[in-house]
């Protein structure tokens, strides 16, 4: 039921979940992830089909180092865009920020649809393949997820991660303690964009075609659902949410047309049944022996004799 292709999609879902999680860990509800994903994917699709120096072969092959270069460039471009846009939108609070980021997603979508070199509604197709089978994509996707997860875990002990948590708890108090809140929020936003951009570059090759529909409002909410249903308090939550919710519509395929109704019901009932999400800090506490606990939890325990 779960083949390699679906596994790669699930990993991409987990990566996008982490991208939404990062700004949220600093208390910022940004739905911009699909815009950065679309930017990264479009860049990779353009470079690999137009720029022969990257080494696309006539039979549709593509060197792996070029793929890695594109993932880096996709992340870089998305990160630069985030730096530019973030300075402007991160002054907005709460739902205003959410809607401004939806606006960004729509602007990027319409731009990709209408720019003269992005292939219009059809998009860019026959993107060269660095791997002969879907299984080949598992390794780079897993590697990217491992790096992102390691970074999120490290963040909890780093000044940046602690500042993000402080802003999430109380932005005003954080500012009073001398935290440069603008800088911290911007850092989280840029990290989120870099991750989404690299993921997009990988996804463009995996999917073989790339068009404007890849980054839409629907994707904004689905990726937010990854975080909310998985649990937004630890980085494992969005990963689990992304894996499960990407697999769900495929696993429901046998029930036929009702599957999207059922998918909607899961999104509808999930937050009601588990307001904290599937993976909560309390759950990780109980699984403590597995070494998944965050450093802060351990510190508080040590402080209590």
């Amino acid at each position: 039921m779960i083949d390699n292709g679906l596994l790669v999609q699930m990993l991409i879902g987990a990566l996008l979940g982490l991208s939404v999680y990062l700004p949220l860990a600093a208390g910022q509800l940004s739905l911009a992830t699909p815009a950065f994903y679309a930017v990264g994917g479009t860049l990779a699709a353009l470079l690999s089909t137009r720029w022969s120096a990257l080494g696309a072969t006539a039979d549709g092959g593509f060197p792996v180092p070029s793929l890695l270069l594109e993932m880096a460039l996709g992340g870089l471009l998305a990160g630069l865009l985030a730096l530019l846009v973030g300075r402007l939108v991160l002054r907005l609070q709460g739902i205003y920020l959410a809607i401004a980021t939806i606006a960004l997603v729509e602007i990027v979508r319409v731009a990709i649809l209408n720019l003269p070199f992005t292939g219009g509604a059809v998009g860019i197709f026959a993107i060269p393949q660095p791997f002969a089978t879907a299984a080949g994509y598992l390794l780079p996707a897993l590697a990217l997820l491992a790096v992102a997860g390691w970074l999120c875990q490290r963040l909890e002990r780093m000044p940046l991660g602690r500042a993000m948590a402080a802003i999430r708890d109380d932005e005003l108090a954080a500012r009073c303690m001398g935290i440069d809140t603008t800088r911290v929020k911007l850092s989280a936003f840029v990290l989120s964009a870099v991750l989404a951009g690299s993921t997009g570059a990988l996804a463009a090759h995996f999917l073989n075609t790339w068009n404007a529909r890849q980054g839409s409002f629907d994707a904004s909410i689905t990726t937010l659902a990854f975080v909310i249903l998985g649990g937004s308090r630890t980085w494992l939550g969005p990963v689990v949410g992304g894996l499960l919710l990407t697999a769900l519509p495929e696993l429901l395929r046998p029930v036929g047309d009702v599957r999207l109704v059922l998918f909607g019901l899961v999104i509808l009932l999930g937050p009601v049944l588990a307001p904290q999400g599937l993976i909560t800090p309390a759950l990780l506490e109980r699984l403590g022996g597995w070494g998944l606990r965050s450093a802060t939890d351990r510190k508080t325990e040590e402080a209590q004799p």
């Binding site: 909410i221 937010l224 999207l260 109704v261 909607g264 999104i267 509808l268 937050p271």
Partner: peptide
Amino acid sequence: LITSLGAGVV
């Protein structure tokens, strides 16, 4: 936001 969107999808 999520639950209402879920209702919309349904």
